[in-house]
Amino acid sequence: MLRIAICDDMPNELQCLVSLTNQYISTQNLDAEITQFAHPDALLTAMEMQSYHLYILDIVMPMVNGLELGNVIRRLDREAQIIFATTEPQFALQAYAAAPINYLIKPIEKQSFYDTLALAISKADFAEEKTFAIKTSGSMRVIKLSDILFLEYGSHSVLFHLLNGEDVLSRTIRVSFSEYSAPILKDKHFMQCHTSFVVNLRRVERFSKDGFTLHGGKMVPIAAKQYPAVRDAYMDYLMAKGEQR
């Protein structure tokens, strides 16, 4: 399912964007869910528990403007598709720091909006969510790969650190960490950067020789001997994402 977040502090403008988006979804027969936010803080709070494939953002908003919001989204998710919709054309150059699909000027022209939505959706990765089943000490948990920050191996168990702050511990595993995490590593967004760590590259906010800094300030180390290979693989990943945009 395609998840769309629309944020605009002006009620009439918000409803206009929601209505246009709903019309497009209906005409294209898409499986999509729209969540609307009247304040950027509400969207930031929601993003602690949920990610979206597409964000449609006003720019002139209280407390956190759309440019700042777009930059936060880009730090949290390098693949999110962002559309700015605003009455203010002068912020266009600044807006491109967040690598948006388009910068639309209100009042929104319907066909231009539809064309932008079509482009954004064509680039969004919203195929059936990939999941992973974790056998814990007392049950089985099925989690979406997109909800994982990183995996950490220790004492023959794997600790899954999730985007919402929850940690899920597997029961004792009888294979190597690399074998256990192999199904996850088939996903292009994941990389084993250390004997005991697998990181979700979508959630990387900063990269250094010491490691990856993720959402919430959590750090995942990079094995010294693996650094050149990890660096090159991460640069290839970023270049691939840029080409897709």
Rank of each mutant, 00 (worst) to 15 (best):
M1H: 04
M1Y: 03
I4F: 02
D8W: 06
Q15K: 09
L17N: 11
Q23T: 15
Y24H: 13
Y24L: 12
S26F: 03
T27R: 08
I34T: 07
H39C: 11
L44V: 15
A46D: 13
M49T: 10
Y52G: 03
L54N: 03
M63C: 10
V64I: 15
V64W: 05
V64H: 14
V64G: 05
N65W: 08
G66H: 07
G66F: 07
L67E: 02
E68D: 14
R74L: 12
R75G: 00
A80W: 00
Q81C: 09
T87E: 05
A92I: 10
A92S: 10
L93M: 15
A97D: 11
A98G: 04
I105T: 00
I108E: 05
E109R: 08
K110M: 09
Q111I: 11
F113G: 04
E129I: 04
A133E: 12
I134V: 12
L145W: 02
D147E: 13
I148Y: 01
F150E: 05
H156W: 09
L163D: 07
N164Y: 08
L169W: 11
T172A: 12
I173F: 00
V175Q: 10
V175M: 07
S178W: 02
S178N: 13
Y180V: 10
D187L: 05
K188A: 13
T195F: 00
T195H: 01
R202W: 00
R202T: 04
R206K: 15
D210V: 01
D210G: 07
G211Y: 08
H215Q: 12
G216F: 05
K218N: 12
I222K: 03
A223S: 14
K225R: 15
V230G: 00
V230I: 14
G242R: 06
E243Y: 06
